[in-house]
Lab assay of single mutants.
Amino acid sequence: TETRTFTDEREARRFEQEARDNGKDVQVRESNGKFEVRVK
């Protein structure tokens, strides 16, 4: 599991989409204006 934290939602979404395109299981959590993207 890899976790990346972004402050920019667009960057978080781009990373999320890229991971999904690669067939990964992705979860995005938002807290305090930060976006935590977990990739399995």
Rank of each mutant, 00 (worst) to 15 (best):
N32Y: 04
R13E: 07
Q17A: 08
V28K: 03
F6Y: 04
T1I: 13
D25K: 08
R14W: 08
N22F: 07
V39N: 01
Q27A: 10
R13F: 03
E18H: 09
E11F: 00
F15W: 10
F35Y: 11
T1G: 12
V37A: 02
V37T: 02
D21Q: 13
R14H: 09
K40I: 15
N22Q: 15
R20F: 05
E36D: 04
E16A: 15
E18Y: 08
R38N: 09
D25G: 05
D21W: 08
R10I: 14
E30M: 12
R29P: 02
V37G: 01
T3Y: 09
G33P: 03
E36W: 03
R10Q: 14
K34Q: 13
D8Q: 00
V28M: 11
F6I: 05
R13V: 06
R29Q: 10
Q17L: 06
N32V: 00
E9W: 07
K24E: 06
D8H: 00
R14C: 11
R20I: 10
D8R: 00
E16T: 03
D8E: 07
D21R: 14
Q17T: 07
E30S: 10
G23M: 05
E36N: 02
R14L: 12
K40H: 11
K40D: 11
R13L: 09
E2S: 10
E30I: 14
T3G: 05
E2R: 08
A12K: 01
E18S: 08
F15S: 03
T5K: 07
T5A: 09
D21E: 12
K24G: 07
F35E: 02
V37I: 07
F35W: 15
E9N: 02
A19G: 03
V37M: 00
T1F: 14
F15Q: 03
E11P: 01
R29D: 08
E36K: 01
D25P: 05
A19P: 01
R10L: 14
R4P: 06
R29M: 12
Q17R: 08
T7W: 13
Q17V: 05
F15H: 04
A19T: 04
R10S: 14
S31T: 13
G33H: 03
E30G: 06
R38Y: 11
D8N: 05
E16G: 06
E11V: 03
T7G: 10
V39L: 06
F6W: 01
Q27W: 12
N22G: 10
R14D: 09
A12T: 02
R10E: 15
K34G: 09
E2C: 15
V37R: 00
E18F: 08
E18T: 08
T3R: 05
T5S: 12
V26M: 02
K24V: 07
F35S: 02
E18R: 06
T7Q: 11
